[in-house]
Amino acid sequence: MIALRFHLLAAALCAAITAIPAQAQEAEDRSSLTIGVGAAYVPSYDGSDDYIAVPVAAARGKVNDFAFWTRGTSLYVDAIPNTDPNGWDIELGPAVNVNLTRTRRIRDPQVRALGKLDTAIEVGGFVGLGKTGVITSDYDNLSVRVSWTKDAGGAHKSYVITPAIEYMTPLSTTTFVGVGASAEYVGKGYGRYYYDVDAAGSLASGLPVYTGAGDDSGFKKVSMNLIAGHSLSGDLRKGWTIFALGGYQKMLGDYKRAPIVDIAGSSNQWIAAIGIGYTF
């Protein structure tokens, strides 16, 4: 992934890119690869009311029915092969995420005065269940997934749990649409690191002292997105596909009340993205 500032908001964009080959796979295609690039307009951090344009890249593929894919700055590898593309797909495997929150491109002067934070390398795993051929056709796909990762370095020293649900359906051999929703549950160390303001930070930024986000673990945000794509080659299973995405997220609880959100930012945030992908 391109190491620029975006995180779970851009995960929805990557879902759009990587959904392209999943809509209609031939049973004999035991290996495949889709790569995509695009541009997104996103908040400069979760809870910001300042927006930045960022380039993004994503990939999805499988080798002998073992799948891998990216979501934002995360990489997932499914250790259970899916040998029946028209049946149930049980997912289980490792996950790693590079958390770039507040490491660069902070537009708000008060939040910038709090200083840049360290990049967190979050390592863990995920479990999920998917089904192809659910509602509209033999090729639509419904999947649910939960990931758990923990900071393996010295940044927030806490964990992130992300439940998500996605539904994708082709409208024809050339067009697909989809909807997705996710949430983010974080440990109190995460809230303390990214959303609390200590006395020194208050003096530097003018924001009030705040310790609410670091008191307890809890849900930080919920997100929703809508996706649409169209094949330029006449077949979603190969060649070029263009896509567009729109998304919304809502900050919750003590994270919504944090000064970097309530005073310097906003609890309501939006994302827009366009891009192109290629399936080999």
Rank of each mutant, 00 (worst) to 15 (best):
A58H: 04
N86K: 15
A19S: 13
D65S: 12
G133F: 09
Q23V: 10
Y45T: 07
A22F: 12
E122R: 01
T70L: 00
A58M: 03
V42L: 12
V127D: 01
K116Q: 13
N82W: 02
Y76T: 03
G128Q: 04
T119Q: 08
L13N: 15
F68P: 04
K131D: 02
A27S: 14
R60A: 14
N141R: 15
E28C: 01
I17E: 13
P81T: 05
W69C: 00
T101D: 03
T132K: 10
G115W: 04
F68K: 04
Y76V: 00
D89A: 15
C14K: 06
L33N: 07
A67D: 04
V54M: 02
G125Y: 03
Y45N: 09
L92H: 07
G128D: 00
D49R: 15
I90T: 12
T101I: 04
S74M: 04
E28G: 07
A22R: 13
D49H: 14
T83H: 12
R107A: 11
Y51H: 07
F126C: 09
P94C: 02
I106C: 05
D65C: 06
T101Y: 02
R30H: 11
G72L: 00
K62C: 08
G125W: 05
T132P: 00
G125N: 01
R107S: 12
P43M: 13
G130Q: 05
N99Q: 07
L75D: 00
Q25L: 14
G47P: 09
R71G: 05
A27F: 08
G72Y: 00
G93L: 03
P81R: 06
A27D: 12
A57T: 07
S31V: 08
L114P: 01
A11V: 02
G38K: 06
V37P: 01
D49G: 12
V77K: 04
I121A: 08
Y139K: 14
V37K: 01
G115F: 02
D50C: 05
V54L: 00
